[in-house]
């Protein structure tokens, strides 16, 4: 087990390095750097340019050095927790980002829990009642969930929640709790706002999960041990609980690998529409103003989150399933 975890951890390093190279290339793609456009803008407005500060920033962030040195500078900075400088906000990226990363993680995790809670019973029902009206109805509902662009769903839900429950529009909490310390009332307010993004982001992932769970369980239900159990007179509920369901659980864990990227990317767009205090809106504005260090560190962070999520799911799977533990390979 220990060997397996170490092996997986070591595999993560080249992956993260490759990701950082791709992100760095994207950062460098726009012509010129942010400082140049900043200077041009200031001069066109007739304002004086603080030459000293510009020179300091350029030197500190290595913008005057060749590309590979800039890259190394950036990567080593990140390893020490310095994600670069946001030129739009005139602050280090770390200060700008604040709670946002944490809230992104929270929203993603709650969404995955929601997806599980919904997909599990429905998937089991669909598989055990194959080709029934319930199965067809739920499958169709799932398809609608996939087909509706979730940003629009978010907009409509936001409106309905406001009309029906009087929830304030946008954000993750009522305005009066922002920048206040955590309290019970603040927590309740967050809960009140959280369910909309969670449901909206969850819809698309849930549908896919139901379909995969149904297919997996159907395969399992056709196996001989199930027939044997049934022939020996096991009650259907017990039979389902004792064997095929436990096999399907494996898949639940391993599916995080494909669920997590879609949850995270769905969350970004929904967050923009609902102006959640997560990475989404800030990533968008950073991209629009070509504040590339900020955008790059967000991108890097989101990709790292996915990689770590997959790692956790692989390790959980290895604990759960001895076959993987002993072969030392991944199931995906």
């Amino acid at each position: 087990m220990f060997r397996y975890i170490v092996h997986r951890l070591l595999l993560m390093i080249p992956t993260l390095l490759a990701i950082s190279i791709i992100v760095f290339v994207i950062i460098q793609l726009p012509p010129g750097d942010y400082l140049e456009s900043e200077i041009a803008e200031l001069q066109s407005q007739g304002e004086s340019v603080d030459e000293e500060k510009i020179a300091f920033l350029r030197q500190h962030y290595g913008l005057d050095k060749p590309l590979h040195e800039q890259y190394l500078h950036w990567v080593f900075g990140m390893m020490q927790g310095d994600f670069g400088y946001s030129f739009e906000y005139n602050l280090p990226v770390n200060d700008v980002v604040g709670d946002r990363l944490f809230l992104t993680v929270i929203v993603s995790m709650v969404t995955i829990l929601f997806t599980w809670a919904v997909a599990f019973p429905i998937g089991i029902y669909s598989a055990t009642h194959q080709y029934s009206w319930g199965d067809y109805g739920l499958t169709f509902l799932g398809f609608i969930g996939v087909a509706t662009p979730n940003f629009l769903l978010a907009l409509v839900m936001l409106y309905l929640a406001n009309v029906w429950f009087g929830t304030s529009i946008g954000g993750l909490m009522d305005p009066e709790y922002i920048d206040r310390p955590w309290s019970w009332a603040k927590f309740m307010s967050v809960l009140e706002h959280m369910w909309i993004p969670v449901v909206v982001i969850g819809t698309s992932g849930t549908a896919g999960m139901i379909r995969r769970l149904r297919a997996n369980l159907l395969d399992e239900l056709q196996k001989q041990y199930v027939t044997t159990g049934r022939a020996k007179g096991l009650p259907p509920g017990k039979l389902l609980r004792k064997y095929p369901l436990r096999m399907a659980l494996n898949f639940f864990i391993s599916d995080i690998g494909s669920l997590l990227p879609s949850v995270i990317s769905g969350a970004e767009v929904v967050a923009v529409v609902m102006s959640l205090p997560t990475t989404g809106p800030m990533l968008l504005s950073a991209l629009q103003s070509q504040d590339m260090y900020l955008a790059g560190s967000f991108l890097m962070f989101l990709a790292t989150l996915t990689v770590i999520g997959v790692l956790v799911s692989d390790i959980a799977l290895a604990i759960l399933d001895p076959r993987i533990r002993f072969e030392g390979g991944s199931t995906r």
């Binding site: 992956t15 490759a18 879609s262 991209l287 070509q290 967000f298 989101l302």
Partner: peptide, 22 residues
Amino acid sequence: QRMIEILRSFPEIPLWMALSAV
């Protein structure tokens, strides 16, 4: 295989956003 794995670990929409922004 490694290339595919790396590309797959990017969340799609943020990467699309970044690429289309440039």
